[in-house]
Nucleic acid binder design. Structure first.
Lengths: 227, 227
DNA sequence: TGCCGGGATTGATCCAGATCAACGGCCCTG
DNA sequence: CAGGGCCGTTGATCTGGATCAATCCCGGCA
């Protein structure tokens, strides 16, 4: 039995078994498109391994990277559960392995199984929360602080090294800055001794110190001031 | 029978009647606090009239205005439905009238009534969508474009005048800029003839033209570039 | 081993918007 | 009617980060 993330873990054993029976596994190479904006959500995808960039394009506007999904995340639960078209396009930022569950089966299972339904709603809430955090970050933190925050977000607990498989452009887009600015921010942090950069690996000797620089200064910017 | 927003409209007649029986109405003056972050969500609030600013404070950080709720919106459905503490603090930016429904009653009703449950999830999805739009706006549009977008967002269909009851600081904070920048953006638009400012009323002679300036230029910024 | 191509870094310059400061109008109150 | 506080506007200046333009580095491949 393989781990399938917090979502299916919440389903009753029978429901989970029924769903797993209809599940297919898929592997996507870096750069592959996993789901396409405005397309009906015919299946629920659960990311087991890798990293998926979720981006939106407005009509005739350039696309923007809105979120980066990591292992364990369910892609587009909202769309699958409510039977709506995908709001985003998903691209593999690193080689990915995913579970695909037919959306209909998932909707039926969720309607039957209160635990599963609740877990699905918790996932939705968690994703909304991440968006909210992103808004807060964009409004209150400068580029360096956002970069620091990103590393902390990625740093596994009880560990001082992160691996960043995604290309720098993607990270920069997610953080709302240019690759140049991200590079400067990272190297700036390294210069103060808070970081050590080794290619796509980053070493964080003092987590607490890094956390400290990621906090918005108390004399915060007007743009974020309490009303 | 008064209008109670899209959420209750989706409930079955019996469920709605049962909920309405437990509902209390409240009025809050400008500046009043409607819900407090990290406080248990003991009731679901539905905004009938007025405007509520939702802001988050991180520990020891300044607060940020994350969203502005308008008439018809349900405040903190997530918290009420999942029985979690509020993620935001709500302040009346204009005098408000609200319905308050005990969270327990709402959870029970939603568990019984599939239509209500679905409507609640749709509301959650809508709010997540708004947050996503905000992220996109912050990443791809400059101050003037965001201001233009805000006005369009507020402009009732088939009408060329908006009333903006909220103080300018709140709007500016929501748009992620300073009040000074908002003022300059608005007056800049007025100078090009796209707008007429009359105190807290704004006249938009040509909606389409305003929409046009709110679009990110095709040669979009690197920070938003497709990956 | 040497060549090639794409991503990452560095440098120089520019500009949108934050900041700081002063001012004007409006409402409220004495 | 005068005074005062608040909100919005305007002006001057400063700066973080975007932009433009070279390299640099590293892995894949002949």
């Amino acid at each position: 039995m393989i781990a399938t993330g917090p979502l299916l873990a919440a389903a009753s054993p029978e429901a989970r078994a029924a769903l797993m029976a209809q599940t297919t596994m898929l592997a996507v190479p870096r750069g592959g498109i996993i789901l396409r904006q405005d397309t009906p959500a015919d299946r629920l995808l659960i990311l087991l391994q890798g990293s998926v960039g979720l981006s939106t394009a407005e009509q005739e506007g350039a696309a923007t990277l809105v979120e980066i999904a990591a292992a364990g995340d369910a892609l587009s639960i909202v769309a699958a559960l409510l039977n709506m078209p995908h709001a985003v396009t998903g691209t593999a930022l690193a080689p990915c392995r995913l579970l695909a569950i037919p959306a209909i089966a998932f909707r039926l299972a969720a309607a039957e199984d209160a635990g599963l339904m609740r877990a699905a709603m918790e996932q939705m809430a968690r994703q909304a929360r991440l968006l909210m955090d992103q808004v807060v970050n964009l409004k209150t933190r400068d580029a360096t602080q956002r970069a620091a925050r990103f590393l902390l977000h990625r740093l596994p607990a009880q560990c001082s090294t992160v691996d960043i498989p995604e290309p720098r452009v993607a990270i920069a887009a997610w953080l709302g800055m240019t690759p140049e600015s991200l590079s400067r921010a990272l190297h700036g942090l390294e210069a103060t001794g808070l970081l050590r950069l080794k290619g796509r690996r980053v070493d964080v000797p003092d987590r607490a110190a890094l956390h400290r620089v990621s906090l918005p200064r108390p004399g915060a910017s007007q743009a974020a001031r309490r009303v």
